[in-house]
């Protein structure tokens, strides 16, 4: 599973590459399925220096009572940031707030979504609600981000 490449040649139809003036309250961001292969998770664990078996080894994770090796919470937050960067490449993320509600298992199909919940014309900022949902429909992460546009 990989994240889709942005099709910036036609941002209006793809949902990617939007500018501040194109954004409306209630707009939904493109739905993505992040790559949660063992290889990707290991790359993140190396970068974060977090080599915990619960992230990298299904058997070790199950021995801890977990359903399988888990996607690190901060990595889930990173998937949401990548979605935001593709959706609005000219914006800067000022804040992201995520609540870890459930365990997301690696090598499964996760779904990430977003929707615009507020816009501020004066500040040129946009607020977006975000989720990471597991293959069984359970929500693993909810969050909110604030993006600032030039």
């Amino acid at each position: 599973m990989t994240s889709p490449e942005p099709t910036s040649s036609d941002p209006a139809s793809s949902g990617y590459g939007v500018t501040f003036d194109q954004i409306e309250l209630g707009d939904e961001l493109p739905v993505e399925h992040p790559d949660v292969s063992l290889e990707r998770v290991k790359l993140w664990c190396d970068a974060a220096d977090q080599h915990f078996p619960r992230f990298l080894d299904h058997e070790a994770a199950r021995a801890e009572g977990l359903p399988g090796a888990l996607v690190p919470g901060i990595m889930n937050q990173g998937f949401l940031l990548a979605l935001l960067h593709r959706w609005a490449p000219s914006a800067t993320v000022r804040k992201i707030d995520t609540v870890f509600r459930g365990q997301m298992v690696i090598e499964t199909e996760l779904t990430i979504t977003g929707a615009v919940t507020d816009t501020d014309e004066d500040e040129r900022t946009v607020e977006v609600d975000l989720t990471v949902v597991g293959p069984d429909g359970r929500t693993g992460v909810i969050g909110t981000a604030i993006l600032a546009f030039e």
């Binding site: 993140w44 970068a47 990173g78 990548a82």
Partner: peptide, 17 residues
Amino acid sequence: GRMVAWATACGDTDPRF
């Protein structure tokens, strides 16, 4: 190196990262 690996692992393709 870690900065690039982190962004890459999260699936980002923005050259800033």
